[in-house]
């Protein structure tokens, strides 16, 4: 995983609630292997019209937002299907940070496992950020993970993050390798669980 320490970049506003993962990456892209990349799949049906031409009204088609690396959006972002492709498409497109009042649970977990920092932020602050972005397109936001702060001009705030995820993100660590270091504990548990719940550990 690509480490995340701090990031400064242009923010794009997409102030809509309940943006689901079908919208972030439509199902037709899902047969791709991870290494082929998903940048073109991001918001595919919002970015272009049915005939494939770019929709000029969509924020990511408008400069300077086309160079955005931070997305500021509405609550319950990433709801719906558990497809991790949604995170890959945001990351492959170039986004490093998503700021929203709330994130759907599965999306939230998927993001942090892929080096995409999601920052739950009160609605009022999100509104302020959006106002700044529309008044001054190209407004940059600075995010520092170590100090857990977001700075945008004269506005700054701190955010919460699970300390373990923070550690993994800062160091680009894979959780699986970390868990396998605890294999002895897992095996001990399996032995005990097998005795108390034989119907679970030895299916017919």
């Amino acid at each position: 995983m690509k480490p995340f320490k701090s990031h400064r970049g242009i923010a794009a506003p997409l102030p809509k609630s309940n943006i689901n993962t079908d919208l972030i990456v439509p199902a037709r892209y899902l047969t791709r292997a991870r290494k082929e990349g998903f940048d073109d799949a991001l918001f595919a049906d919002l970015r272009s019209e049915a005939d494939g031409t770019a929709d000029p009204n969509f924020v990511l088609n408008q400069p300077p937002f086309d160079a955005a690396t931070i997305l500021v959006t509405g609550d319950n972002f990433g709801c719906g299907s558990s497809r991790e492709h949604a995170v890959w498409s945001l990351a492959d497109y170039g986004f490093r940070v998503v700021i929203a009042p709330s994130f759907a649970d599965i999306f939230h977990g998927n993001s942090l496992q892929n080096g995409l920092l999601v920052i739950p932020t009160p609605q009022a602050t999100v509104n302020e950020l959006c106002t700044k972005m529309s008044e001054t397109p190209g407004t940059e936001i600075t995010v520092d993970l170590d100090s857990q702060t977001v700075v945008c001009g004269n506005l700054s705030y701190t955010f919460d993050i699970d300390p373990y995820r923070k550690e993994c993100l800062l160091n680009g660590l894979s959780e699986t390798a970390d868990t396998l270091r605890r294999l002895t504990e897992i095996k001990t548990f399996e032995g005990r669980h097998g005795k108390s719940h034989p119907w679970l550990t030895a299916p017919n």
Binding site: S82, E84, G109, Q113, T179
Partner: peptide, 9 residues
């Protein structure tokens, strides 16, 4: 439900 990274885990 879990995502691909969790599936790998």
């Amino acid at each position: 439900g879990i995502g691909a990274s969790e599936i790998a885990h």
